[in-house]
């Protein structure tokens, strides 16, 4: 691995100060994405600012107003095991517990899960050209065969954001607290993602001096129906090919305040607003799920090798809605 300086921040505020002083620095916590990219020389930063000792960022708190505060360094294993998560945010605990492998879940953090870069095989191997790394060519668009990391929406870059935890956070209207040297600022989940640009590896609005401090889930007065489903090739240690998280309330027998988010289908976690509109005000049935999927997928423009994901998205939405309806959560 390339040599770097390793600076340990004692607080998130100190991390922001260190980032302001070191323009080329990267934020380190679990290292499961960053260190892999540094080994492959996809990232050649000279300085890591680590949150590994930063106070408080490993906590999950239920606040007095009922909102839930999740520190940036909370791991996927901690989310999956957390009593607060399992009780109030069961879809988040479920998605976190299904991700990766036991060892990776012990390291991978919620903030890193959002900020991770694409898992496109061509992006990850410096020997291939990549549009995101500044080349003209994109091997995925030219390749035949089945593409597991490609999405079905937004054609500028066909690689999909791989997180299955992110669509759940989207469905919960999570807010991301981002800190820089001037202080913290809340970023709505929708606004956290940046459209793909040539030569830009990151998929978020995080700038050079920014560090994620926490994820905040707003409180809800009414009973919440939450559902999650993912489709993947292997039972363990695999990425979702498509994931789907839904949340709604029931008002007089009809779905209200509906959220439908997909993972692994677009360069960012993808909010299916047309599906939400189709479901809003109706009953939660498999027929409604099919109509909502039609609405959501009307805009799909997959490369040939990822066209199968349209079907997987239909299946995932139907299962996620059934999961919510059955009220196990």
């Amino acid at each position: 691995m390339k040599a770097f300086k390793f600076l340990r921040a004692r607080t998130c505020g100190e991390a922001a100060q260190l980032l302001a002083k070191n323009a080329d620095a990267r934020v380190h916590a679990g290292g499961t994405d960053l260190l892999g990219r540094m080994k492959e020389r996809l990232d050649t930063s000279d300085v890591l600012v680590s949150l590994c000792d930063a106070a408080g960022l490993d906590q999950i708190r239920v606040e007095t107003d009922g909102s839930i505060w999740i520190g940036a360094r909370v791991t996927l294993a901690e989310l999956a095991a957390s009593e607060a998560c399992r009780t109030f945010l069961p879809t988040l605990a479920e998605a976190a517990g299904l991700a990766a492998s036991p060892q990776l879940r012990q390291r991978a953090t919620i903030a890193g899960n959002l900020a991770q870069q694409t898992r496109c095989h061509y992006f990850r191997l410096a020997t291939f050209p990549c549009w995101k790394r500044g080349d003209d060519a994109c091997p995925v668009k030219e390749a035949g065969g089945v593409q597991d990391t490609a999405g079905i929406f937004d054609g500028a870059c066909v690689s999909a954001h791989p997180s299955s935890v992110a669509p759940v956070l989207g469905s919960l209207d999570a807010e991301i607290t981002v800190r820089d040297a001037k202080g913290p600022r809340p970023v709505p989940f929708d606004a956290f993602w940046a459209a793909p640009k040539p030569g830009i590896a990151t998929d978020t609005i995080l700038g050079a001096g920014d560090v994620i401090e926490a994820i905040r889930i707003p409180p809800r007065a009414a009973k919440q129906y939450m559902g999650y489903a993912e489709v993947r090739q292997k039972a363990a240690f695999d990425w979702a090919l498509v994931s789907c998280a839904v949340r709604y309330e029931i008002v007089e027998g009809a779905m209200h305040d509906v959220r439908v988010w997909f993972g692994s289908v677009a360069p960012a976690p993808w909010r299916a607003r047309l599906a939400e509109a189709a479901l809003q005000g109706g009953a939660c049935t498999d027929e409604a799920a099919a109509k909502a999927a039609d609405a959501a997928l009307a805009e799909a423009r997959p490369v040939a090798g990822a066209a199968y994901k349209e079907h997987l998205a239909r299946v995932a939405l139907r299962r996620a809605l059934a999961d919510a309806r059955e009220g196990a959560k």
């Binding site: 390793f6 679990g30 290292g31 499961t32 260190l35 892999g36 080994k39 680590s50 590994c52 990766a100 492998s101 036991p102 060892q103 990776l104 012990q106 390291r107």
Partner: peptide, 27 residues
């Protein structure tokens, strides 16, 4: 694999299985 994809570098840190390839010596 050095990337967290195989688990062969697993060690125990405070009794918990961890990937030594994705943990810095400093940590």
């Amino acid at each position: 694999c050095e990337l967290g994809e195989c688990g062969t570098c697993t060690i125990l840190v405070d009794g918990v299985p961890r990937l030594s390839c994705l943990m810095l010596g400093l940590e």
